[in-house]
């Protein structure tokens, strides 16, 4: 995933851009392929080739709408073509937000892109300046932002810690510097830095300074 373009090389021109209206045949279908259906970009999640010994072939395909996140099942008659989506994934560094857009930078080219609130979604609560995120770009515009699996965030607000209660016991809500509310052990104090799993939104451990 390290900054590579997860897109088939077959359809690229010399400049590395997809040719307009590039298509994929169903026999190129595989998970991870990005296609356009009814104007929306989709990611192929699973593809199964089905064919009776005597009879016609079909591809049973599970696809995820990259805008809405909705997963649906479709059946293609094998041999049909579908428009390829110019969707690539890049690892970019998160810089800052101006309240309306979230700005990311390619550390090699120093090119910047701005993601809107739709693309950022709830990921905004895990974005910390300098962290590297996977940015999914559709026609060079950010579509989805995937934060690192683990982030280290400072607790900006929580109830005072209970001294001596360091091993087991309950949890309390705490707010991170990025505005996320998470459940933390009772012994955590304001100003501490915690490691958090962004996939579950759960506290993992304290980070020693």
């Amino acid at each position: 995933m390290l900054g590579c373009q997860i897109v088939t090389g077959l359809l690229k021109t010399n400049t590395g851009k997809l040719t307009p209206m590039a298509t994929y045949n169903t026999n190129e279908f595989k998970s991870g392929l990005k296609i356009i259906l009814n104007g929306d970009p989709y990611n192929i999640v699973a593809n199964e080739f089905v064919k009776p010994g005597k009879g016609q072939a079909f591809n049973r395909v599970r696809i995820k709408n990259l805008k809405s996140g909705r997963v649906i099942d479709k059946t293609w008659r094998s041999g049909e073509s579908v428009e390829a989506a110019d969707v690539i994934e890049k690892e970019l560094q998160y810089l800052y937000t101006d309240g309306e857009f979230w700005h990311f930078m390619d550390e090699n080219s120093f090119e910047q892109v701005a993601a809107d609130a739709t693309a950022v979604g709830d990921t905004r609560y895990w974005l910390k300046d300098g962290d590297r995120c996977v940015v999914t770009l559709w026609n060079e515009v950010p579509l989805v932002i995937t934060p690192p699996n683990f982030v280290e965030l400072t607790i900006s607000q929580c109830d005072p810690g209970l001294r001596g209660d360091t091993a087991q016991g309950g949890t309390k809500p705490a707010t991170t510097e990025t505005g996320a509310t998470i459940k933390v052990p009772l012994f955590i104090e304001e100003g501490e830095v915690l490691k958090i799993d962004t996939r579950s939104g759960e506290y993992v451990s304290r980070v020693k300074k």
Partner: peptide
């Protein structure tokens, strides 16, 4: 939910 640019004959539908 079928994607096909061509009409399906009865045999194709039975296969599906």
């Amino acid at each position: 939910d079928l994607v096909s640019t061509k009409a399906l004959d009865n045999s194709a539908i039975l296969d599906i």
